[in-house]
Design a binder for these strands. Structure first.
Length: 493
DNA sequence: ATAGGGTTAG
């Protein structure tokens, strides 16, 4: 029996439960940040995208702009997918006669520079924060560590943590938990576990620490290791929480151990856990994705019967499952039910339905749903565009895909790495010389925007250009590739 | 930015 394999555990401490916020995000009552700020940010982003870097400082110094940390942060977020422009904007404001950057804007700038792997620029900003005596904060260093980890430089991430005190930050339990989480989320769980074992006596590790490590093992599909962490936690007198249980539960689903997940869920009930909306959402999603849609729906009903109130994430899980394993029409019914009950769908909800339509080959309905999304005040995001563009191209409507892509250029939703990859792949469908020229153009454009194409993408485009007789353009891309630090492969031109 | 549930695809 599985339950016998579970360590003997005390009844978990239940996390503090927040009352459901069904109507708190009503569309008629906009949240605090002034609606005007959003339009200002869009206007500034557009201006930055269009202007010559040399005259940008002057333009930004004009009294038309009321600079505030919030506005600067908004603009940086809009320019997120155009790193060089974002950095230009941030630097140009240094020359403003009165405005001084806030720590949070610095953090965004550090993030953007580090994401482009310009660590020198990122550290220069850290130094500048220090001389202005506004940082770096532990968050700044966490951002840097995260960028190192996701660039495959986990050791440098650890070094950032180990040398925190050199930057005027305290090494405490919170920063320790953060670095462990960063390592785990970039799948360096073994390294996280080792760091944990090395330093656990120095910090008063808590349930959060153990939960982070347990979650890490689940992420790389090793629930047995998570259970071991669980056991060790109990042995050391740290009470598991509902979060711990929810982590293990999801771990079983990730390894497709449905029976174990079900048994674990029953065990949670037996141990009188106060099963919450996260537990139920995990169950609904887990069974649904595994194809057990009826069980998903039954669990949804059970939740309601138990007076656990679903939220948008719960509905999103169900909508996703119905799109994938049932059919879009039923997903739409659940979506409408959610709306009727007063829940405000978010971009995840809309994207799930849009993907459902795309998958069912209903491109017109997907596009109409996208328009509805916009009308209801939920701006289509880059994921929305990526899905629709991908399916339009797959369906052979490459012109329409390109058209949508052009629409993104105005700055309200700039294309990201995935968008470029999707579109470049689409340029191979028709095997037309002109399409390959477009692919080459897109490749150069993405590099100019701070994205580093994979070697695979370079090779594919190079091959395509050579095969269609565009040798000159291929040469240009090859030289760009070597400037990007990617080894140019042998190619006869 | 100290932990858990919805954004990927056959």
């Amino acid at each position: 029996m599985l339950t016998r394999a579970l360590p003997k555990l005390p009844k978990p401490k239940t996390s503090f439960s927040v009352p459901p916020r069904t109507f708190s995000s009503c569309t008629h009552c906009p949240s605090p940040p002034q609606p005007a700020a959003e339009e200002d940010a869009n206007a500034v982003a557009k201006l930055v995208l269009q202007s010559d870097p040399k005259t940008l400082s002057e333009a930004l110094a004009k009294p038309t702009f009321q600079w505030s940390p919030h506005l600067v942060d908004r603009v940086l977020k809009l320019l997120w997918n155009h790193g060089p422009k974002a950095v230009q904007f941030f630097n140009a404001l240094f020359r403003h006669p009165t405005y001084v950057h806030s720590p949070s804007s610095f953090d965004h700038a550090v993030d953007i520079a580090a994401r482009m792997r310009d660590y020198q620029a990122a550290w220069a900003l850290v130094v500048r924060m220090r001389s202005l005596r506004i940082g770096p904060t532990p968050k700044t260093l966490a951002i840097l560590a995260e960028r190192y980890a996701s660039a495959g430089k986990a050791h440098r991430a650890v070094n950032v943590f180990l040398s925190m005190h050199h930057h005027g930050c305290r090494q405490d339990l919170a920063s320790f938990n953060t670095i462990l989480d960063i390592l785990c989320k970039s799948r360096r769980v073994e390294m996280a576990h080792n760091l944990f074992k090395t330093f656990r006596s120095r910090f008063n590790c808590d349930s959060v620490t153990y939960n982070i490590i347990a979650n890490g093992w689940c992420l790389i599909k090793r629930p047995p290791m998570a259970l071991q962490v669980f056991k060790e936690m109990v042995e050391r007198g740290i009470m598991p929480t509902l979060v711990t249980y929810n982590i293990i539960l999801k771990g079983y689903f990730m390894t497709r151990q449905l029976n174990e997940a079900w048994e674990f869920f029953l065990e949670m009930k037996r141990r009188k856990c106060e099963i919450d909306v996260v537990t139920y959402t995990t169950m609904i999603y887990g069974f649904g994705v595994a194809g057990e849609v009826k069980k998903s729906k039954r669990i949804f009903d059970e939740m309601v019967g138990e007076r656990v109130v679903p939220n948008v994430a719960t509905y999103n899980a169900l909508v996703h499952v119905l799109c994938k394993k049932d059919n879009v029409e039923n997903a739409v019914l659940v979506f409408e039910e959610m709306v009727v009950k007063g829940f405000v769908p978010n971009s995840v909800s809309y994207n799930a339905v849009i993907r459902g339509f795309c998958h069912a080959g209903e491109m017109e309905r997907a596009l109409r749903f996208m328009a509805r999304m916009e009308k209801e005040g939920c701006q289509p995001n880059v994921q929305t565009y990526n899905v629709v563009i991908r399916y339009l191209c797959d369906a052979g409507d490459i012109e329409k895909g390109l058209e949508l892509f052009e629409k993104m250029a105005d700055g309200s939703c700039l294309p990201n790495l995935d968008t470029y990859n999707v579109l470049i792949s689409a340029m191979f469908i028709r095997k037309k010389s002109e399409d390959l020229m477009v692919a080459g153009k897109l490749l150069l454009e993405m590099i100019n925007r701070g994205f580093l194409p994979r070697k695979f993408t370079f090779n594919r485009v190079l091959n395509g250009l050579v095969l269609t007789g565009n040798q000159d353009f291929a040469r240009e891309i090859l030289s760009m590739q070597s400037r990007c630090g990617r080894l140019p492969r042998q190619l006869k031109l």
